[in-house]
Design a protein around this nucleic acid. Structure first.
Lengths: 140, 140
DNA sequence: ATAGGGATTCCATTAACTGGAAGGTCAAGG
DNA sequence: CCTTGACCTTCCAGTTAATGGAATCCCTAT
């Protein structure tokens, strides 16, 4: 299979597939013409990757999952712990977004949204008697 | 004020402040020694930026908000529409994360998490009788 | 032979910083 | 006067996960 077929069948853009090869997630063969030649197993891996990515797993998570996927003697506990950790990150992110949403929707509903300059949104952002922000962004 | 003071007072890392100058969000003066010299107005802008960023506004949104903030003849409608658009993006993101969360938490709870290899999480990711992506990630 | 649709590589760009190196500046202490 | 340490400066690279585009090559059909 050429990359175009695999792209169609896996739903991943060809660019992305090349990128995944670059970073060592798949290793298709090469034909005499230099074209990548994908086996069924490559296609399966790519489809697996697409699904894992769509669940928000990072590339590094995907690398780990793929390794476990191919390891017949894996322990499901290892898979589960990756997934649980990811679940926690998702929960954190949701909580963070919900906090933003709460604050912002209050401000938005308090704003007249007309042609006058008075704006509670700007006033709030300009408030100087408050420290930067309650919940830190928690960068990693 | 030197950058260290402003960093302390605004809560932003000095690195970030320099970056914000780079991209034209603030324009501190310079002393004879080449050090940045921040006025109170610069500090206020930076604090404003810190708050806007913590609400998840993009840098470009911040640029727009800052411009409106400094424009006495602004219309609050302009501010509101930026905020509403952002609110919509937040809602989309929350929905996307919640969908991931639903799927993943089902899988996680179905996984024994022991030393055996059987794993519904991997099985699901490997399923080939399903198309790649339920809801597109909406890359734009 | 030529046209078209694929394929290849390589480079740049995105968002918003962050880390680190190499070096200049300033105030205090010996 | 010199050193030490805390600041400051610039510049370059790296992060995440691709994506866009250019230049070029290959294959098939007409």
């Amino acid at each position: 299979m050429n990359i175009g077929d695999v792209a169609r069948r896996s739903g991943l853009p060809a660019k992305t597939i090349r990128y995944y090869e670059d970073i060592g997630l798949v290793a298709p063969l090469r034909g005499a013409n230099g074209y990548r030649s994908f086996r069924d197993s490559d296609l399966h891996k790519l489809a697996f990757l697409g699904r894992a990515r769509s669940l928000g797993f990072s590339i590094e998570d995907c690398r780990g999952l793929l390794k476990l996927y191919e390891d017949d003697s894996r322990a499901s506990a290892d898979v589960k712990s990756i997934a649980q950790e990811h679940l926690r990150r998702i929960e954190d992110k949701i909580a963070e977004l919900q906090a933003m949403h709460r604050t912002l929707s209050h401000l938005v509903s308090a704003c007249a949204g007309d042609d006058r300059p008075d704006c509670p949104i700007l006033s709030d952002l300009a408030e100087s008697d408050r420290d930067a922000r309650p919940a830190g962004k928690g960068r990693r």
